[in-house]
Amino acid sequence: MWHWIQRFSSPKHFYTMSVPLIKWFTVGALLIGLYGLYLGLFVAPTDYQQGESYRIIFIHVPAAWMSLFVYMVMAASAGIGIIWQIRLADMVAAASAPIGASFAFLALVTGSLWGKPMWGAYWVWDARLTSELILLFLYLGYMALQSAIEDQRSADKASGLLAIVGVVNIPIIHYSVEWWNTLHQGATVTKFDKPSIHVDMLIPLLLMAVAFKLFYAAIVLIRARNEALYRDRNRRWVRELIEQL
């Protein structure tokens, strides 16, 4: 078993094995994403309170979910890299960070676009917005540390440890920000009575969430492949690959 993991997780093996995976993930993300968007933008009923502008949730909510999910993946694979010294796990962690940061950024931008017609302002110091912003900062800190350390292996370990510390902190930050907001000002704009979501809205939302996950899987594999090529640029298997071109 252990031997098998070692062999499978070698960058060379990964480089060839990931090709069909990327293909299928991309096709899946495209098909499910297009169908989800069609259902969300054309089929789902108009919201009786928010009108048409609620439809941004089909991008906004999956992006916000993904920003947290990618952080968990990043920290978990960084932990695997630190504990079992599997280089592929380090590559996946390093490849995930910019994607997760982009998801967090996308969630913030779509949220503020939605906030303008709904709340009358692009930015409100709402608990969820604030913790999403802090999550973005955590990603940026991880990336800064990763690029500041010259030696690749210790850069991976150091930023991986930071990601794990971040995971311990995320729930604390989340709940303290939530409490901060409710203590400061009673929730007035942000907490209108939300009807439980209609099933015609829920299905496209879930489809989009699946599409975003597949999209992330495809992108992280592509980025990890590049990472593998770059890090092993002086090894034989990469040299042989280049000679074949």
Partner: peptide, 15 residues
């Protein structure tokens, strides 16, 4: 760099 990685973790204490 230090302030970049540490300040987000300080937020709960500040609050």
């Amino acid at each position: 760099l230090l302030s970049l990685i540490i300040l987000p973790l300080y937020i709960p204490i500040l609050i």
